[in-house]
Amino acid sequence: MESIKVSDEAWALLVDGEVEAVFGLVRYPAAHVPWMRCSAVVGMHKRALFTDAHAWLSSIHIATVPLANTVAAGNSEAIATLEHLGFVIGDIVPNHGPEGSFRYFFKEPRNV
């Protein structure tokens, strides 16, 4: 709920009329923070997810700031999805949950 409250934009993803994901974007001066929470159902529709996600990321990644957030270090499916979408998986995030549990991910700024 906190992510939705602080987001400049937030959406729901429907699969067969059911909400299976929520996602959004928080804009800070130094970085824009894309986020998503989804059910396992979304993983069964990866082609559509990738198509829609590429389009959404292109629409929001026009500023001169990076897109950045964190991902659970042990979530190999989320990491593979982020890499497929062009994100770089970075270092372990210090002081964020149990030691070594989160990694940064980011895309460099696009100058349009």
Rank of each mutant, 00 (worst) to 15 (best):
P66T: 08
A80L: 06
A10H: 13
R47M: 03
S7E: 14
Y104Q: 00
G17D: 13
G17Y: 12
G100R: 05
G86A: 07
L14E: 14
E9C: 08
E77R: 08
L14N: 07
M1F: 14
F105T: 00
V22N: 10
A80T: 05
A72Q: 11
W35Y: 11
Y104L: 02
F106P: 00
D91V: 03
D91P: 00
V26C: 12
S7M: 09
N95D: 12
G74C: 04
W56Q: 04
G90F: 06
A12Q: 10
E9V: 05
P94C: 05
V42T: 11
A73Y: 11
A40G: 04
G90E: 12
R37Q: 07
V22P: 04
S58C: 05
M1L: 14
A55D: 13
D52K: 05
P94T: 04
V15T: 09
G74K: 06
M36D: 11
P29F: 07
G97A: 03
E77D: 14
T64P: 03
P66A: 08
S39P: 01
V88K: 12
M1D: 15
P94M: 05
V112K: 06
V19E: 15
V42A: 12
F102D: 14
T51A: 11
P34C: 08
Y104W: 03
M1W: 14
V88G: 07
F23Y: 15
V112D: 15
E2S: 07
V71I: 08
I79V: 02
G97S: 01
V33M: 10
C38A: 06
F105R: 01
L14W: 12
R37P: 00
D8P: 02
K46A: 03
H96N: 05
S59I: 03
